[in-house]
Design a protein around this nucleic acid. Structure first.
Lengths: 179, 179
DNA sequence: ATCAGCATGTAAGGCGTTACATGATTCA
DNA sequence: TGAATCATGTAACGCCTTACATGCTGAT
């Protein structure tokens, strides 16, 4: 498994739950997972190819319905690699928020620009929060199914975080308008 | 200014406040700014060189004390570029948390592994929160100085966020132990 | 005298984004 | 019939991390 290519474990994690095509994987990454990990076709397909060579996944070609589809299945070796990574006690959590950069350097422009930047951020957070709450409600109906309790935890994380962002927006706006 | 190289505006933002060497810039990025933007020497020095070519910054060599030092100074053109970026109404805020990935895919291992991963995250958050609170206290002494109110906003953001993380840790731990 | 920190850079290699290329299927 | 979505990939290019290379300064 490539040392710095974390998409590998994302794919293994998804395949542990069910067999998927590269296209399916992309859809998952555009959904709830997208809040904390992104992926692109140019990322996913090469990773699948190299992981197949390494024996972490196997491909199951299917022409059901005439359309070409390649389902990938996790191997025992792939499962071991996934579990080994899950048990590693180091992790890299990275945040790169251009919004905070703009706030931090807001002294170079009029106060109104910073206020506008906070507003834009706030709108964005509200949109995302609505989506996350939808995921939450849907998950609560199926919490007993395997793995769903884990998905639920990450959705709760997103909600807790975004609610904190909204509180901060209010405070920041107040400070910008008062001082 | 390179389209996708955001370190440029970070450097311009720092230089707007005061002249700095590449080494100084790295130190800033290892401080409070590091919570939302990272940088490395291999990143900073080439950016400074190319920005000098573009006329966004000028270099002021100094051999005061015998040690070679290159202070960079923002030009009018650099200031305009910084202000233009601050006023752009789009922004990319990216979060890549391996911790959440491990939580999400925790179904592949024993419950105890996920509990341990939450604990590790919690310890990390507490450490960072202590640092942020220190920054906050220091900033509160100098809030009247130019730009400091903006730095203060980003520190408040960090604190609000990390406190939310801690609340989530408690909830997540409870869910993992009860269900 | 030695070691940590100051200070400036270069080089290799990997990773990821974006755009491109192609074609099938489904639904209105 | 046309548009959106399904589906798989490749190629170029840029960016960043990591490691390397070098040497000075100040404190113990």
């Amino acid at each position: 498994m490539a040392k710095d290519r974390k998409i590998d474990v994302v794919i293994l994690g998804l395949l542990f739950h069910e067999d998927l095509t590269g296209y399916d994987i992309k859809k998952r990454l555009d959904g709830a997972i997208g809040f904390f990990w992104k992926g692109s076709f140019g990322n996913i397909y090469p990773a699948l190819a190299s992981m197949e060579k390494e024996g972490l996944v196997t491909r199951k070609d299917s022409k059901a319905g005439g359309r070409e589809k390649i389902f990938y299945h996790i191997t025992k070796q792939g499962t071991k690699a996934l579990q080994a990574w899950l048990q590693e006690e180091q992790f890299s959590n990275e945040l790169r928020y251009e919004t905070l950069l703009k706030l931090h350097f807001g002294g170079a422009v009029d106060r109104s620009v910073t206020i506008r930047n906070i507003e834009i951020f706030e709108e964005d957070v509200k949109r995302n929060l609505a989506v996350l709450n939808m995921y939450k409600e849907n998950l609560e109906k199926v919490l007993d199914e395997a793995d769903h309790i884990h998905y639920y935890l990450t959705v709760l994380f997103g909600i807790e975080t975004y609610e904190a962002y909204l509180r901060w927006c209010k405070k920041a706006m107040k400070i910008m308008k008062e001082n």
